[in-house]
Design a protein around this nucleic acid. Structure first.
Lengths: 205, 205
DNA sequence: GTCTATATTGGGATAGAC
DNA sequence: GTCTATCCCAATATAGAC
């Protein structure tokens, strides 16, 4: 079946493109490299995707939406706010460890072209998940479990800040740890263990 | 005095280069744009700095070292750990607000070329400041002011995470806030007010 | 030192054979 | 669909006049 074969090549190109774009960014990526990584000819890349921009946008939306989807589902599980915070950090840290250069890639690209973020949000149903979590926080504030001065959105942003930054700052932290006679990997394994407790300590009534 | 004049043009080019590089990154920046912003001819840029790489490195080291210097000094002021945390967020948030696209630029460039960070650290005396702050945290742990399970380095990284991420994530937060019928600017003004208290709540014994 | 004009190359994109 | 060969432009860099 011809369609099948062509689909496989499309996938190969996509996979190679994810690799190349995540490593070098849009401006640094090379179509030749993508072709090489996919084990095919450069002209074929253009045959399937017409232009670098089009290929990039397709790749970007897929990886970004996949990331946001995983992100949203952890907020949507059962449990108290404290339990969800623990679950979130566990899941998110695992995910980030496996995709260490995704965050800086993602943030840099949406900074370069803020229009991308709108397209990502169109399909990822983040809103209801966010709103649900915010509501739960307010409930638990009313129940006296969470400090009344906690602003739900700020809490959410704080959680994400704490989770993502250690990966975005990898090169800096690597250098700092070296100067402190440690190393990035061992630091991170320690660091991730205290994130949930750090947040919970801060907000518990 | 000829030297004076030439120095002024060098400065103009540097200023224009900071602008262009911070906005577009190394790969996205254009020598022609830098010349235009400096109000001079493109050939002159090469006359003064030979190549794009050389110009970039000079610009990068200056802005990065300036940033790290300001960063380090706030850790070095008088006061308790809690006071320093408050002072740090005040200073750092003001600084970031005035240089909103510096963090993502900086982190992206050191990610692209991790070698840059070594050169930044060579001149910025960060080590003693960091070590001093760490020592103080341990002192106040011993005095019963700070929880005994607080790991100083992780605390430091948490503080920096909380401070910087809202700026790195600007495009995302802008979109989210829009969908929540708010806007990025007002969010940030609220958000920054709770950062110090968020940390202090978390670590106070 | 400062400009105009030009060299050079890297890299995205297409034409055309098979 | 897949390749080779080539086009073409953008962008760094330099030569050379003034």
């Amino acid at each position: 079946m011809v369609k099948e074969i062509s689909k496989n090549i499309e996938d190969k190109i996509m996979a190679a493109a994810v690799d190349e774009f995540e490593e070098k960014g849009f401006n640094g990526a090379r179509m030749q490299q993508i072709a090489d990584k996919a084990g095919i000819n450069k002209a074929l890349v253009h045959y399937y995707f017409r232009s670098k921009e089009k290929l990039f946008e397709k790749v970007f939306l897929i990886v970004a939406q996949r990331a946001f989807k995983k992100f949203a589902t952890t907020l949507n599980n059962d449990g108290t706010v404290f339990e969800k915070i623990g679950n979130f950090f566990n899941m998110h840290q695992d995910l980030l460890w496996k995709n260490r250069n995704f965050p800086i890639f993602f943030l840099n690209e949406v900074n370069r072209n803020p229009n991308l973020i709108k397209k990502v949000f169109e399909k990822a149903e983040l809103d209801s998940n966010i709103l649900g979590f915010i509501e739960q926080i307010n409930d638990e504030k009313a129940q006296g479990k969470i400090r009344t001065d906690v602003e739900p959105i700020s809490l959410l942003v704080n959680i994400i800040s704490l989770s993502i930054f250690p990966y975005i700052g990898q090169p800096v932290l690597t250098e700092v740890m070296q100067r402190l006679n440690s190393d990035y990997g061992t630091f991170l394994q320690q660091h991730r263990q205290q994130l949930a407790q750090f947040v919970i300590n801060s907000i518990k009534a």
